[in-house]
Design a protein around this nucleic acid. Structure first.
Length: 103
DNA sequence: TGAATGACAAATT
DNA sequence: TAATTTGCCATTC
């Protein structure tokens, strides 16, 4: 019971460390977690977060600088990002050059 | 135990 | 340049 895999633990810690007002990519989180080709699994971890999670999951976007979520979830993520000063256009795109977390 | 899943990314068309 | 396919692998069922 309770014992989570090392990968999920790492992902949670890394995402918790993303500064407010910055974003990072699924690929970078995977890299930092020690599994460079597990970007897809990072998304998997976030997808399974409980609704009330305090983790800043919304600071994670894809390598194109775009929000990967669709529908209502896309709007929720965009609003959360804009709420901390990050510019997001109507297509759900963010300027990675400007907001990327330099870890 | 194994097949299915998928909030990605790189390669190929 | 954009769309599609392929590779990837932790997790779930």
């Amino acid at each position: 019971m309770g014992e989570q895999s090392n990968f999920s633990e790492r992902v949670w810690q890394i995402i918790a460390a993303i500064p407010k007002g910055k974003v990072t990519t699924y690929g970078d989180v995977a890299l930092l977690a020690g599994s460079p080709r597990a970007a897809r699994q990072v998304g998997g971890v976030l997808r399974r977060l409980p609704p009330g999670s305090k983790l800043p999951w919304f600071r994670v976007i894809n390598r194109h600088g775009r929000i990967s979520l669709q529908g209502e979830d896309l709007f929720r993520q965009r609003d959360a990002l804009e709420a901390e000063g990050i510019e997001v256009n109507d297509a759900g795109e963010i300027d990675l050059e400007k907001y990327r977390w330099a870890y």
